[in-house]
Design a protein around this nucleic acid. Structure first.
Lengths: 357, 357
DNA sequence: GTGAAAGCGCTAACAA
DNA sequence: TTGTTAGCGCTTTCAC
């Protein structure tokens, strides 16, 4: 009835060697004669051995420390959500003696990133999860980790050159395309569509330009109508200037929709849209920030694309912990779904903790 | 640095009893004197003991058998996807000696359901995961399980009266509302909107009527335009009749959008829409069936709402296995997000296996 | 290079 | 009613 699974002991018996020898070839720890190696290898080939992870874990005394390098959650709501993911992962893994320790840097400060990352590195963790906001600095950091042989999981922003163990995030180019499609849906005739980068900092812009590329690409591919695309980069501008720019943008009678690429920037846009009574302009943005949810509910924002930083973070830590703890190799890339949120399905996303399992 | 967690051994030492005694009070197996009980209980109160689940598992010889009662995957693509979830869960849990055994019934046959469920029940499983398609028959079945004290996890269709351990599925009412909102987006002026139930069987209709309620509710709440809602129940009709009905529906020049509530039914609608060149009628349906994906890509279908039966099934088995294996009580209800799929974000959903973790 | 043996924290059978 | 003990499958140490 029940097929008992094969143990190391069984393999040893079949191969006519001891348990220790089998273990040594299983982990190529060396110190095995060619003869013994052959015997074990050939029996291994005949059967389908799956190690009992539970037993393995219990047998290993080693405990792991994972370090998570992320922007300070106090400074930014998006990263606040990410921090919830850290907490969740931490409490889930602590019972297995895997401790998760966050290191926070200032989202707008390269130096802070460098400094925090350095500190985290010097603490000699068994693995690192990082949101590599600053490209150049991150590259250097990855190199360090490579040399020290510390596995790194990257999320939020991909840096393939860093050769991380695994990347977790969204396809930003497609995200721009989705936004364009939603903004364009049911809009007849010609019209203008704007894409706005509203950012307190200039650093992140590579990240945002991917969305822009997708956005433009959509309209180029659907050029059956004469559309004009307005791209406005307000990164690094102060609030007064941002307001001015948006105001003059809204003066355009042909404007039919706006995409704001930064999760934070859309609230100010929504506010101005309300102020000037422009409720025929479709507005799309990112992420379930409190203010954004408010404007989505009231109807000023039409769609939000959820980047789900909590899930991304949680998943990143999970992948790394599974790798360290259970030797489970994660996929090189985890592209998360582009979740479209409307007033109507909002609750289903807010409520389902399940989603983040 | 590292805080070692408390073991049963430690408790025994602190309480001045043996580990056997501690184990007995921990599992209230009785056979403990009042005095010893007090000693253990009081030390237990002082410290925060968390059992090592890994060790517990290894120490327990018990192996579990979970039975999954679902419609035959060969007869229906939606349930084919569900079956993938079963396979995934099965292969994930087999290493822990939790075996997952599917029992298939005919989706359109009450008797088959009854018979299969009975058979599954008589096999004396440790737990049951079930898609209770037929209400009355399911009620009786739940009663049986309650008496025999077998935990039941329900998915796809909720039957709260059955008092299952846990339900997994979507809020169908909200799903109807989401569909209505998407179908209505950017549509100016008055117009007619149809909701179609195309089903080979009449049995399922309660399920579908929830979607209808949400659909109508949306338009009632947004009555600033004179909309007419056409609800057509084609459950149990043959294909010829279905085609006729749809054809005459399409003759309506005011028709601006159609929602088909069954995942299978939308393909026939899409085909007719193409045939009659009605590409201004917005079409929305459910689930990532092969044909549906084709029509989504070609633009005949505008949106699909993903019910993700694979994920639902996988999650259901997981919840039950965790409950049996790790004594982890699942939430009473897991309402899954209402995933909106367009041509643009389709790949992100098809690709991400991660989503199903 | 090899095998025997102790130990991970818990369960469960068994003596006392 | 108690305490002791032999596993669970694997890792790791330590003689040989």
């Amino acid at each position: 009835m029940e097929k008992k699974s094969i143990r190391i002991k069984d393999i040893a018996q079949l191969a006519g060697v001891s348990i220790g020898t089998v273990d040594r070839v299983l982990h190529n720890r060396g110190k095995v004669s060619a003869e013994a190696l052959q015997k074990v290898l050939s029996t291994l080939r005949e059967i389908d051995y799956k190690p009992n992870l539970i037993a393995r874990t219990l047998g290993t005394k080693k405990n792991y420390r994972i370090v998570v390098i992320v922007p300070d959650p106090a400074l930014d709501e998006y990263w606040g959500q990410s921090n919830q993911g850290i907490g969740q992962a931490a409490s889930e893994w602590q019972q297995y003696d895997v401790q998760v320790e966050p290191y926070f840097f200032n989202l707008y400060d390269k130096e802070s990133f460098k400094c925090t990352a350095g500190e985290a590195f010097r603490s000699q963790p068994d693995g690192i999860v990082i949101a590599p906001i600053f490209y150049q600095e991150a590259l250097h950091f990855f190199e360090q980790c490579r040399i020290s042989n510390i596995p790194v999981v990257v999320f939020n922003t991909n840096i393939p050159e860093g050769k991380p163990l695994c990347f977790i995030g969204q396809n930003l180019y497609e995200s721009g395309k989705v936004a364009a499609a939603l903004i364009h849906l049911g809009q007849q005739g010609a019209g203008n569509f704007a894409i706005l980068h509203i950012n307190e900092d200039r650093g992140n812009s590579i990240h945002l330009l991917e969305k822009e590329r997708g956005f433009k690409e959509y309209f180029e591919a659907n050029h059956h109508q004469a559309h004009q695309i307005i791209a406005l980069n307000l990164s690094g501008s102060d609030e007064v200037r941002v307001k001015q720019e948006i105001k003059s943008l809204l003066a355009d009678a042909q404007l039919k929709g706006i995409l704001v690429t930064t999760s934070k920037g859309i609230a100010i846009t929504a506010r101005l849209l309300q102020k000037y009574g422009k409720n025929n302009i479709r507005l799309i943005g990112y992420d379930l920030l409190k203010e954004n949810i408010g404007y989505l509910k009231s109807g000023t924002i039409d769609f939000l694309i959820n980047q789900n930083s909590k899930h991304q973070t949680f998943l990143g830590i999970n992948q790394l912990a599974n790798f360290l703890f259970l030797k489970k190799l994660p996929p090189a890339s985890n592209l998360l779904p582009l979740e479209i949120i409307t007033r109507e399905n909002l609750d289903s996303y807010l409520g389902s903790s399940v989603h983040y399992q």
